[in-house]
């Protein structure tokens, strides 16, 4: 059965993924809206920057973050002065890194929904008396709720699954930075195959069922609304 260490890693992983998803669901909608609508010259650059974690080896991202988090650099130094702890090898550091590398997974489904949104719905909302922001959160966002759930779910799942970045900047501190994927690696390194089997199976079932819900249910629902 699962050990106390396993449970601790599962809890830590859920905490990390939950917090990351929460932050992303605040940041991603305005960013995705801007990316979907803006004609600015800067837009392709920002779009590329957001998408970068999709193709960049996670270790590259992790390496740069590690440097940025170190006390010799501005960010790490500022954080040290602010909270008297180090960002590297800390849970806070992991959250920051997770927000960056899971960003495209949250932004892209939203951006796609916003692009396919018929802009006449915005016009109708304004003729019904709904102002610039009110029409978004009272009418348009509820209409695109499936896309919001897909985005959140993908961000959550991807944060649980990330390995490279976590390894680079988090190290392997139980209760602080030792998440599931790292612990699994540990189990395999120390030839504890049955423990590795258990964790792998949990991750496999979780990921698979999430994707089935997304593709089999949520996406269809959203398409029905967008194609209406």
């Amino acid at each position: 059965m699962l050990s106390a260490g396993d449970y601790q890693a599962i809890w830590l992983t859920l905490k990390l993924a939950g917090l990351t998803t929460f932050l992303l669901m605040i940041m991603a909608p305005p960013l995705a809206w801007w990316l979907a609508r803006s004609q600015a010259k800067l837009r392709p650059l920002i779009e590329s920057l957001v998408a970068l974690p999709l193709i960049l080896p996670p270790t590259v991202l992790g390496f740069y973050l590690l440097i940025a988090f170190s006390p010799e650099h501005f960010l790490g130094q500022w954080w040290l002065g602010f909270s008297e702890t180090s960002l590297a090898f800390s849970f806070t550091g992991l959250v920051i890194a997770s927000v960056i590398y899971s960003l495209p997974f949250v932004v892209q489904p939203l951006q796609s929904a916003f692009v396919h949104l018929d802009k006449t719905y915005l016009e109708v909302s304004s003729t019904l008396g709904y102002g610039k922001y009110e029409r978004l959160y009272k009418i348009i966002f509820p209409m695109l709720l499936p896309s919001f759930i897909i985005s959140g779910a993908l961000g959550f799942a991807h944060t649980i699954g990330e390995f490279g970045v976590v390894l680079m900047i988090g190290g392997n501190i139980p209760g602080e930075t030792q998440v599931l994927s790292i612990l699994l690696f540990d189990h395999v390194e120390s030839l504890q195959y049955s423990s590795a089997h258990q964790l792998s199976f949990i991750l496999l079932v979780f990921s698979m069922s999430l994707l089935v819900v997304i593709y089999g249910f949520l996406q269809k629902r959203q398409q029905r609304v967008l194609n209406a």
């Binding site: 006449t120 109708v124 009418i139 209409m143 029905r224 209406a228």
Partner: peptide
């Protein structure tokens, strides 16, 4: 409008 444009959700 020419099309009804009801909210589909």
């Amino acid at each position: 409008f020419q099309e009804p444009r009801l909210f589909p959700h």
